[in-house]
């Protein structure tokens, strides 16, 4: 069940991580090993089992009361590039996204 290069490329694209040529090979074989190992789960009898939930089982909500936000300076303090009080990014090529 070795991962194909196509799958590795697809996954790297989804994760937005650039992999160089030889890294693709290595990642493919490392991930394949893990996936071979986890195939052990195929032996578990999960018939009729509900997926597990880890936290509280009922909603935890808060009141609709505003609290002071960060100052703009605080919000932008760690930003690699700032302009006009906003985070600056280079141009977006090729595609739109949901707004």
């Amino acid at each position: 069940m070795r991962l194909s290069k196509e799958i590795v490329d697809h996954v790297a694209d989804l994760a937005q991580i650039r992999l160089k040529g030889e890294e693709r090979e290595r990642v493919a074989s490392e991930l394949s090993r893990v996936l071979e190992y986890v195939a052990i789960l195929d032996g578990a009898d999960i018939e009729g089992v509900e997926a597990s939930w880890h936290g509280p089982r009922a909603s935890v909500t808060r009141m609709d009361a505003p609290r002071p936000s960060l100052t703009r300076a605080q919000a932008l303090a760690n930003a690699p590039k700032v302009r006009e009080g906003m985070f600056q990014i280079p141009r977006i090529l090729g595609e739109g996204e949901e707004g």
Partner: peptide
């Protein structure tokens, strides 16, 4: 975008 390392590039992707 908002904090941490940024390796500069000509486009966002």
């Amino acid at each position: 975008v908002r904090y941490g390392l940024r390796v500069p590039a000509g486009d966002l992707r």
